[in-house]
Nucleic acid binder design. Structure first.
Lengths: 139, 139
DNA sequence: CAAATATATATTGCACACAATACAATTGTG
DNA sequence: CACAATTGTATTGTGTGCAATATATATTTG
């Protein structure tokens, strides 16, 4: 029986290391747009949705307000998006893109392709990977 | 042609979210031992290797000294390990477990099993997952 | 052997993550 | 309608990650 308490026998560690490696792979492309990877994920949502509350962003990204609030404030400072309290329910903050934020979409369009290229995995492997991870996330 | 700039079409985002979810799944088990997930990874190495320099730990975990130094100091404060400069080369810091640190191994032995159970993936899927991730990491 | 170079760790600064808590606005209930 | 419970965001504190820089020690080279 092999020792499960060995780094090389771990399944979660490769995923953890790979996840960090992924944000490192995105970094050079995102730096050109002054975005971090989590900020890029926010932009992905806003390029489609136009209006999102902090809570809606958090549900989609699995992040809470303790992470999102300062992140969104930094993006607001950079002029990419606006934060405005809802008129109808003042507990909510509505996030929406500025024109500058909208314009970034075009520049970002090449990023997914570049990343897949860098990863060097086949389409089949990517589909497999996504399928398995999605199953585990659905617990 | 589907829009690659949509969150639901991303392959990296599920991996990123899943990686965070994994450390959340470990948290309840590790809290009993006063460990975080990265600290647990350090312990996995030291339970096998006995002596490791900061650099050796960093190579195995893909982490740099800016991350490891404070992390190891916190673990030293908790009495799990010792940090001592090498006599032969004073640039190096040798990390080794205390008796208390050694003893934690027994309590940790059940963790890998519990995690796999929680994940709810088949052995085949786990092997697939590890194989694909390892391939991508080897670029 | 002295000076340049390389190596190993530490420090600093910034950006996440997340638990715990706080707080204001809203909703549900008697 | 008062008021307790809920909801949505913000704040605080701790712990990573990582780039850039600093510092001390070794090693290489002329």
């Amino acid at each position: 029986m092999k020792d499960l308490l060995k780094l090389e026998n771990q399944i979660c560690f490769p995923l953890y290391a790979f996840s960090r490696e992924l944000t490192n792979l995105y970094r050079p492309f995102l730096e050109e747009m002054d975005l971090t990877y989590p900020q890029y994920l926010v932009m992905l949502i806003l390029w489609v949705e136009k209006q999102q509350t902090v809570n809606q962003l958090g549900e989609k990204l699995y992040l809470d307000s303790g992470t999102l609030t300062p992140l969104l404030k930094r993006m607001e400072l950079k002029g990419m998006l606006m934060r405005k309290r809802s008129q109808t329910d003042e507990r909510m903050v509505i996030i929406s893109l500025t024109d500058a934020g909208e314009k970034m979409k075009e520049k970002a369009s090449c990023i997914p392709g570049k990343l897949v290229e860098t990863l060097g995995l086949s389409i089949d492997e990517l589909i497999q990977l996504k399928k398995i991870v999605n199953k585990a996330m659905k617990r």
